[in-house]
Design a binder for these strands. Structure first.
Length: 316
DNA sequence: GACACGTGGAT
DNA sequence: TATCCAAGTGT
């Protein structure tokens, strides 16, 4: 940081810090007594998933598995089952693997630094930096989709950040990070909160923004995005089929025979045990046999399901 | 670097 | 109804 714009930056830091004081949501993983494990679990659950859907599942997990060793002592299938409908169930699998690694390689304690956190399954550059910062007060360059959008508008004058994180964005984030440890943690948290609550992707609430006076995007007259985001396909995809299969496995008390996935229960001559609704939903997709096979094989390969007594079940 | 990977609320 | 998009990671 050059001395020339240090003063400018200070105003930015100060304005956002005060806004955060007055407007931050009371989230349980922000409580002072929340453990590093609780923060790690929250960060993984929050990947690509809104806060409101994470809250009840996070509370259930914290009550069920208060420490990494508690989770590590159970089958990975339990983690997947109690992941519920959060989505991307491989995250549950990796969180379980992380718990095992923490128990076996870190004496049961969540690592307190970026490098070791990055070595845990399911923990990438964002999550490693976030846990180091929010659980251990480290000065880290935290860059998530909220912070990227805030930087894009406030500093770069663009409606949206690039489709993928660029080196230039990382350099900018590093340049904006306060030198002071404590201030850096608050800067990360407040920029993220601003992006989530005010500087949103659609319909940003600029009238409520504490730093609108310094916003390059507003000053430029709110130019539209330079590209159109490509939406994620869903209907008819393998992902949809995998999701429907997982819904069946989560509800099943025991292994589900492969035939049950391939044809309607009525044609089998017996009723499924408690999996009627999700099984009916799967069959309603009416997916091609090869697509169903691809989905089942994929789930087995990913470790989200295993074969037992000729049927599929969550890993036990 | 492009893609695959779940889910459901909001617009 | 169709599309967007939410505290990303791994291959």
């Amino acid at each position: 940081m050059t001395p020339k714009n240090t003063g400018h930056l200070w105003l930015l830091h100060e304005a956002l810090d005060q806004w955060f004081d007055a407007n931050a949501r009371d989230l349980p993983w922000r409580e002072p007594d929340c453990s590093p494990w609780g923060i790690l679990v929250s960060e993984v659950m929050l990947q690509q998933t809104p806060v409101v859907r994470v809250l009840p599942v996070w509370r259930d997990w914290m009550e069920r598995w208060p420490t990494p060793a508690d989770l590590a002592g159970h089958p990975s299938g339990d983690a997947v089952r109690h992941w519920g409908r959060l989505g991307y169930p491989r995250r549950a699998l990796r969180l379980h693997a992380a718990a095992v690694a923490i128990r076996d390689q870190h004496k049961g304690a969540v690592p307190d630094n970026y490098a070791e956190l990055l070595g845990l399954p399911g923990v990438g550059s964002y999550t490693a930096a976030a846990v180091a910062a929010f659980a251990f007060g480290r000065r880290e360059t935290v860059v998530d989709t909220n912070i990227r959008r805030v930087h894009a508008r406030l500093i770069s004058g663009q409606a949206l950040p690039a489709p993928a994180l660029t080196a230039a964005e990382m350099r900018l984030a590093e340049a904006l990070l306060p030198e002071d440890r404590g201030l850096s943690v608050r800067w990360n948290a407040s920029a993220m909160e601003l992006g989530a609550m005010v500087c949103t992707a659609r319909n940003p609430k600029c009238v409520d923004c504490p730093v609108r006076a310094g916003c390059a995007w507003l000053a430029a007259g709110e130019p539209p995005p330079s590209y159109t985001p490509k939406g994620q396909a869903w209907h008819g995809t393998d992902r949809q089929v995998r999701g429907a299969v997982m819904a069946v496995l989560r509800e099943a008390a025991g292994p589900v025979p492969r035939e049950m996935f391939e044809q309607a229960p009525a044609d089998l001559g017996f009723a499924p045990s408690g999996v009627g609704v999700p099984l009916a939903a799967l069959h309603r997709l009416n997916s091609a046999p090869e697509q169903l096979e691809r989905a089942l094989d994929g789930l087995l390969k990913d470790g989200l399901a295993e074969m037992h007594d000729g049927g599929l079940r969550l890993p036990a």
